[in-house]
Design a protein around this nucleic acid. Structure first.
Lengths: 198, 198
DNA sequence: CCTCTATGAATGAAGG
DNA sequence: CCTTCATTCATAGAGG
């Protein structure tokens, strides 16, 4: 249905479309990851995965659907949010640099020096150990769950895309993750992950 | 309870006057479209407008400024984003299969090839109704516009300008009326839009 | 029930 | 156009 404004906002948020309902009998609303799903996602993240490709999202979603209802966009959003919030927490140390530049506008507009928005979010310090540099082997799913013989060409289309240095993958069951995300994670050495389903 | 995020509903805050926001809760550093603005933009989009020219952006922005603070670049970005996200919603790279909770063997679907299987995005599978070929007469604003005599085709496939390029082009005081945009307007002749202010 | 936090979802804004 | 980052909105859920 288009524009189901069931929110309090008058804005035309098509918000409802998202989230699959909780497959476990939860009321329809937004996706609520199960503990298993969350475990896998977190492991992948800690293994260094930040911005999975469409194919990776698909496969992750497929695998996670074993544990409950999930859609690709849930995986996508999860990584987006998790990465952003991880960065946000790390950014507290930075000064309140206002990275905002208003363009030409004759209408008077009010500026507001925006501190680190210390209302609700980054008020907690997280001393979580960043294991991004850890090279670990993840055996997330049983290997007999899938057909490894399936050779899928990922992102192989004569496109003049300048692929970021995010991910280099091979057709083998192992693939390396390089990161160039600078501020977030420095990977001196490639991770050798056994994420066979990716 | 010191502060609560009061930005919850009511997007209609007319911050246009620059009301000085003393505690209006509108800490909006970025443009937040009002419902009226959003309606107009959506109508224009539904009418077929996809990539407005600089002049169209200028005029739209001018008109929308009646409803609240807005800049040209907001209009530009809105169309960019809306177009891209509409497309991405249309594209179903879904996890389309029904998730089975007791099986592991399920990757043998092998559908038809994808044309563009790139890196990220396109992970959504939102089905939202939208009538595309609606020929509607939009009388969005009172007819107080002017006639354009110069028809300049400033758009070409190679002329991929970001907003900065838009800014630069704005200097040239061009008036593009009825830009014979074949690609943007799905229906050039049948759709006789009364977008008089454009 | 109410407040507050955590987080899924959405979108404005850029960069390339 | 594509992808990504930053910010915001809305809500489920834990705690009072």
């Amino acid at each position: 249905m288009p524009f189901s404004v069931e929110c309090h906002s008058l804005r035309g948020n098509s918000h409802g479309g998202g989230g699959g309902g909780g497959g476990t009998g939860t009321k329809c609303g937004r996706w609520n990851p199960t503990v298993e799903q969350l475990k896998v996602l977190t492991d992948l993240f800690r293994a260094g995965l930040r911005t999975p490709t469409t194919d990776q999202i698909q496969k992750i979603s497929t695998e996670l659907s074993f544990y409950g209802k999930i859609e690709s966009k849930n995986v996508f959003y999860w990584f987006q949010n998790h990465k952003a919030r991880e960065r946000q927490k790390r950014r507290k140390i930075s000064t309140g640099f206002d990275h905002r530049h208003q363009e030409n506008d004759h209408i008077s507009h009010h500026h507001h020096h925006h501190h680190r928005q210390s209302s609700t979010r980054d008020v907690f310090e997280i001393n979580e150990e960043e294991e991004d540099n850890v090279v670990e082997t993840l055996q997330l799913f049983p290997v007999n769950s899938f057909e490894d013989s399936k050779v899928e060409k990922m992102r192989s289309r004569g496109n003049n895309h300048q692929y970021r240095d995010y991910i280099r993958e091979t057709n083998t069951t192992t693939f390396s993750l390089y990161s160039s995300c600078g501020a977030e994670m420095e990977h001196p050495s490639p991770l050798d992950l056994r994420l066979s389903f990716l």
